[in-house]
């Protein structure tokens, strides 16, 4: 997590320079006018009575789902570690004539115990190693697995799912401020699993994009960029069944958090 007051990323460009006080350029009357407009809007509605029973019921369900998800992921994590140990032993056996191991799948799950003072913010724990960025040609369709394909053009990110419907997100339409580090997140899926992807931008030193589930499980995304280090790229990952919102965090190569979308 970026702590307040963190020094700006030196590779983020002119947009990362300290900004002046936003009130400096506005007259006091203008600020008061805006404050009054906000208060008028806020007091223009009359809230209903608090639906306490519904809140309690939904809160208990949320707690049960979170506990169940964490338990399942803990079991999955233990099984993954055990399998990794077995594989490592097999590959370090000097008598083994097995071929070189195939590349690891793009998404890995690392279970992590929740903090006793856990909050909705993403973790500040950096990924253990930087993710290698795959450089692709403009328009080169990358097989992202499970029927999904992703490709990049100078305009931005494009992807298509098993249903054949194409989507895109532009980096040049003005909705993305590439002067500062940031990530976007789009997802599509069903109760069995989901495909997550997004843009990352505002840095030429990306070290990884990581998703964190409501139970603390972490998924490292695959990164794609166009040639020439354009300062932006695309990340994608698959997740299994999740019962809550995922947070997305982008780190630099030193493991410093550059930007996060809280879950």
């Amino acid at each position: 997590m970026t702590t307040p007051g963190t020094a700006p990323d030196p590779e983020t460009g002119p947009g990362s320079a300290p900004a002046p006080d936003p009130d400096d350029s506005a007259t006091r009357a203008e600020v008061d006018r805006i404050r009054e407009a906000f208060a008028r809007e806020a007091f223009g509605v009359t809230p209903s009575p608090v639906p306490l029973a519904a809140v309690r019921s939904a809160g208990r369900s949320f707690r049960r789902r979170r506990t169940a998800t964490f338990s399942a992921l803990s079991a999955l994590g233990a099984a993954t570690v055990a399998a990794a140990v077995v594989v490592a032993v097999a590959y370090t056996d000097p008598s083994s004539s097995a071929p070189a191991p195939v590349a690891a799948p793009p998404a890995t799950v690392t279970p992590r115990a929740p903090s006793p003072t856990s909050s909705p913010e993403p973790t500040s724990t950096p990924p253990r190693t930087s993710t290698q960025v795959r450089v692709v040609a403009p328009g080169e369709r990358v097989d992202a697995g499970k029927g999904w394909k992703v490709w990049l053009t100078a305009e931005g990110k494009h992807w298509v799912g098993p249903d054949g419907l194409e989507n895109s997100r532009s980096v040049i339409d003005g909705n993305v401020d590439t002067a500062e580090p940031g990530v976007s997140h789009q997802s599509s899926g069903n109760p069995a699993g989901a495909f997550h992807s997004g843009l990352y931008y505002g840095t030429r030193a990306v070290g990884g994009v990581e998703l964190t589930g409501p139970g603390g499980e972490r998924i490292t995304a695959t990164l794609l960029e166009l040639p020439g280090r354009p300062g932006w790229g695309v990340w994608y990952a698959h997740t299994g069944a999740t019962s809550g919102d995922l947070s997305v965090a982008m780190y630099d190569r030193a493991g410093k958090l550059l930007s996060a979308l809280p879950g």
Partner: peptide, 14 residues
């Protein structure tokens, strides 16, 4: 969960 500089930028533009 961001830097003060980011807040200033958002506030200035907003």
């Amino acid at each position: 969960s961001c830097s003060i500089g980011t807040v200033k930028t958002h506030a200035r533009r907003g």
